[in-house]
């Protein structure tokens, strides 16, 4: 019994220590932002690996999620003779939930894990130490650009996801299932509020971008510098990011859509 309690306590202490360490790291990362502004090249390079390389999976997923939403929504809505609301349903679910959340989950799997692996490998091969001994702060030089790029890329990717989702839904709803084209757009415009739906979705994805890249760079920087350690850190990044996104989504939804 006491052993169980002790183990529980040890787990808590470890969790709190990790949280504290990651907070300190975050502060150091944010301190470097002003320096980054003087070297926009670094940011562009990271936007490439975090953003551009993630576009394909985001675009394809967005398109298919929109198409499936439209298909499923049509079967249910047509039972109530409310097919005209199909566009609203597709757009609302994409903008409010699926766009930010699915993008963040895919981002964690594609970009987050790659970030962790890259930073972890740089640590394992002493590149981070090497930078430090060259009087270059690895946190500012390596982590800050990656963090800022992830923070910027997430809402952009989410916007792409939602836009392509709406188009995919339109293709299925209007093109294949015969919902009227005018009704689709007019109903959507009448019922989707830019502030309530669109802005809140963007805020969500900003929060997710912050948290996902934070987790990714922390796991990479904090990984055990061996190949086993880096692969464990990569797995942890995906698991922690996904859980954080889903948990935060619930909290944010509760706060936003009263």
């Amino acid at each position: 019994m006491t052993e169980v309690l002790a183990r529980l306590g040890a787990g808590w202490i470890l969790a709190v220590r990790h949280l504290g360490r990651s907070l300190l790291l975050l502060l150091r990362i944010l301190e470097g932002v002003d320096e980054l502004l003087l070297r926009p090249r670094l940011l562009v390079e990271q936007l490439f690996s975090v953003g551009v390389l993630t576009v394909l999976i985001i675009a394809v997923s967005g398109l298919f999620v929109g198409m499936v939403l439209s298909l499923q929504g049509y079967y249910i809505l047509s039972q109530f003779a409310a097919e005209s609301a199909l566009g609203v349903m597709v757009a609302a679910s994409l903008l409010r939930e699926l766009g930010p959340v699915v993008t963040a989950l895919l981002f964690a799997g594609r970009a987050g894990s790659a970030l962790t692996a890259e930073i972890g490998l740089m640590k394992a091969t002493e590149q981070l130490s090497g930078l430090e001994m060259m009087a270059v702060d690895p946190v500012r030089r390596v982590l800050t650009p990656r963090f800022v790029a992830g923070f910027i890329a997430m809402p952009l990717l989410a916007a792409l996801f939602s836009a392509l989702g709406v188009l995919g839904g339109w293709f299925v709803g209007v093109g294949l299932l015969g919902v009227d084209d005018g009704t689709w757009w007019v109903q959507m415009q009448a019922r989707i509020d830019w502030n309530e739906d669109l802005s809140n979705g963007v805020i969500k994805s900003l929060v997710f971008g912050f948290v996902c890249t934070w987790i990714a760079v922390f796991q990479g920087y904090n990984s055990v510098p061996t190949s086993a350690g880096v692969s464990r850190a990569t797995t942890r990044t995906v698991v922690h990011s996904s859980l954080a996104v889903l948990g935060l989504d619930f909290v944010l939804t509760a706060l936003m859509f009263k």
């Binding site: 952009l156 916007a159 836009a163 709406v166 669109l198």
Partner: peptide, 10 residues
Amino acid sequence: LFFLAMKVSN
């Protein structure tokens, strides 16, 4: 984003 704002939302 522009598409979402102008064409999808109000």
